[in-house]
């Protein structure tokens, strides 16, 4: 029994000599030119734009906002929407492991070596990228409470109600934290038999002996757990599943390669959106701001 990998090599048809070109000069020339173009472009860029150098490092003066290097700002963006352990470590680790695992899951050797090799690859790519970008942006807008600001401004601006403010009954829909702070958890206890369940949602005893300093392990703060862990994780798992189900319904998915195309494109969309928002749209206190309103203060 040969492995699929070995079989893939074995079944490759013999190389047709006429279809081949010599590496020297055909490939070496292209490599040389592309290296030359990049050298010149970078030289020009370096002559025009200086690498930033701010004041000498000072542990007592914190810039606001403080930002990681731009390629980690997608993670820093995630940090604003969920428990730090998820955003900083678990999500990127899982993402990288899943990324590395793609070829072990999508093993079909068909459709390699050509761009967008399946029938619906183009649509899946465009849909995955666009939908993920849109959904991510909407989620960021929602968690930044921009919909609250916009609604208030529109209603006040139209003169409908000059004192309008977001109704208290919708406090839970202000942002992600709204599920924590905007719901009257204290009055949500219920009774089973003679016991009143979850009278105090913010300290549900888990019965785990206290060997750790993490308080939620001992007494679960359910509202906080819901908004910082359950909802973000459910979103990150649920949306890709939803995407796949939706595209399957459209008849676009016929193989694992199609699913991979959809999810990878969506991943690229999320990656780009969070990076751009984290880089250009986060001002003081990590508030959402247009790029031209962002000033770095030193405090």
């Amino acid at each position: 029994m040969v492995s699929r990998a070995a079989a893939a090599i074995r079944t490759r048809p013999r190389r047709e000599r006429e279809a081949e070109v010599l590496v020297w000069p055909d490939l070496v020339f292209i490599e040389f030119i592309s290296a030359l173009i990049f050298s010149i472009a970078l030289m020009v860029l370096s002559a025009m734009v200086n690498a930033p150098l701010l004041n000498r490092a000072d542990p007592d003066t914190t810039p606001n906002p403080s930002k990681a290097p731009w390629y980690f700002l997608n993670l820093q963006e995630l940090l604003l929407h969920m428990e730090p352990a998820w955003a900083g470590v678990i999500v990127p680790t899982i993402a990288l492991v899943l990324l590395a695992a793609i070829p072990y899951w999508d093993r079909d050797t068909e459709g390699q070596g050509v761009w967008f090799g399946t029938k619906f690859a183009g649509r899946l790519t465009v849909f995955g990228f666009t939908a993920a970008t849109l959904v991510t942006s909407l989620l960021i807008i929602w968690d930044g409470s921009l919909h609250v600001v916009w609604t208030e401004n529109v209603i006040r601006g139209l003169g409908l109600n000059s004192d309008f403010s977001w109704p208290g009954g919708l406090d839970w829909f202000r942002n992600l934290r709204g599920f924590d702070t905007g719901i009257p958890w204290e009055s949500l206890g219920f009774t089973i038999g003679g016991f009143t369940m979850f009278e105090d949602w913010r300290a549900i005893p888990l019965g785990i002996p206290g060997t750790t300093t993490d308080p939620w392990l001992l007494n679960l703060n359910f509202p906080s757990f819901l908004s910082q862990q359950i909802i973000p994780v459910a979103t990150m798992v649920g949306l890709p599943v939803l995407f796949v189900v939706f595209c399957k319904g459209l008849g676009w998915i016929h193989s694992r390669r199609d699913i991979a195309l959809l999810i990878f494109s969506a991943f690229i969309g999320v990656y780009l959106t969070t990076t751009i928002v984290g880089t250009a749209f986060r001002g003081q206190g990590q508030d959402l701001k247009p790029p031209w309103d962002i000033v770095v203060l030193e405090e």
């Binding site: 990998a5 070995a6 090599i9 070829p103 459709g111 070596g113 050509v114 761009w115 967008f116 090799g117």
Partner: peptide, 11 residues
Amino acid sequence: FYTGAYKPPRE
């Protein structure tokens, strides 16, 4: 990824 170049035997 988009050229499917990760497929066997290149996993």
